[in-house]
Design a protein around this nucleic acid. Sequence first.
DNA 1: GTATAAAATTGGGCCGCTCCAATTTATGAA
DNA 2: TTCATAAATTGGAGCGGCCCAATTTTATAC
Lengths: 242, 242
Amino acid sequence: MADLVYQKIITSLKKSIDDGEYSDMRLPDERSLAESYSVSRSSIKRALGLMADQGIIFKKRGSGTFVNPLYLKQGSSFSYSGKNLGITDSFNANGQKPGVKVLKFDVVHPDKDLQDNLFLKPSEFVYSFERLRFLDDVPFMIETGYIPIKLAPELSEQIASESIFNYVESELGKEVNKTYLTISAQPSDEEGKELLNLSANEPVGLMEGIFFLDDGTPFEFSTMKLHYKYFKYDSFVDLGNK
Amino acid sequence: MADLVYQKIITSLKKSIDDGEYSDMRLPDERSLAESYSVSRSSIKRALGLMADQGIIFKKRGSGTFVNPLYLKQGSSFSYSGKNLGITDSFNANGQKPGVKVLKFDVVHPDKDLQDNLFLKPSEFVYSFERLRFLDDVPFMIETGYIPIKLAPELSEQIASESIFNYVESELGKEVNKTYLTISAQPSDEEGKELLNLSANEPVGLMEGIFFLDDGTPFEFSTMKLHYKYFKYDSFVDLGNK
DNA sequence: GTATAAAATTGGGCCGCTCCAATTTATGAA
DNA sequence: TTCATAAATTGGAGCGGCCCAATTTTATAC
């Protein structure tokens, strides 16, 4: 990625862990690491802090830093491929080929809910679109999205059939990299049964997301209905009992 | 909470935001904040960094720090009551009174899956228990948990009927504060229909969690089946398109 | 006016140090 | 040997500084 000190340390430490260099599951103390990497303790702390946030290691004041024993295992629920999966523009599935079909593409006024979520006035317009997403030609997700026209004036059905976020980044020079996500589940509705080939008793997973530009502007409100077999969200959580 | 500098700054800044002190949605620059709070810029950075992680503010190099416009709003999908809701030992529901009923409580050998997830040998024993949880006397969740006996030798059905984590903390002096969570959904099975009063087409939300002690020891593996109407998980995600 | 270039602003990264708190280890008395 | 105490270890918090990169603002030229 970048040539940042703490990033390189993370990469290096991960490799050391993978190579089984810390057979006792214990990392060297921060001061030693700082010396052996010839960097400041601050940089070591930054690296270890991030790794702890990702659940790779555990830090305990007074005793040391330890490898998460499940980080190495295969087959356990731990996959650790990334922090939080499931919501990339191009659902980076495991080798499966993604597809998109645009079902609707309109310009409308936002309803009250949308006005709140995208911080809009009732008079402003939003693009409204519906997309069906595929993995290896199998439909797995119905996506309903809303984007204020003022934020992406040139948006088109053509762009929606490819990647909206890529367009925003390359053509508008903006970046979408934060989301507020609400995850839930529902019985499948008519649309779900039809488009996702669900039977009556099979549910959909629901992911409602507000996507933000890097300066905090709410950019898109999206409702994603997923076939329940494709619905999986992993996360490492700090319960913060403090 | 604590009397840490960066915590106090976070509290203060949140208040300022709530009070509408930054009507242009823009916070003072870090150097100014450091001066006005009479702290180092490092502490300001730490405070702002944490607030950015929580989605309260957005930082953009070169331009400044901005309040998330949705942080203030009501009615929007944003609740922001905490970081990630949904998984406290005593599901801290909004004023609703929690209840627990222990359905099963045994000691067994772990199967292969459990051995992986709790890092156990086949010969070791685990407590196996099933609990039904209520909110205002309405059942909403079936919980199946496994805890190695070596980690909590004195565990009992009595303790399971109250709070296991509170017991661990107060009696064993350990702390459970990290979880690896996998979230998904399923059609309701017989157990769900019966105990959660679900009809055939109504699903359950599934949360599989591995709970860790503060030193990284996997402490409990838990499968939580939730009535879909009580199943909601909020999170603020960094998509990390970097 | 408008486009270009320079300067100022602002957050990012890194250093190296001090002091502190939690924990572990070593010490020594009973 | 046991147990209380002291010392050493280890991560946490905080400071104040340096330089850099992205962005915005200002100044300058045409």
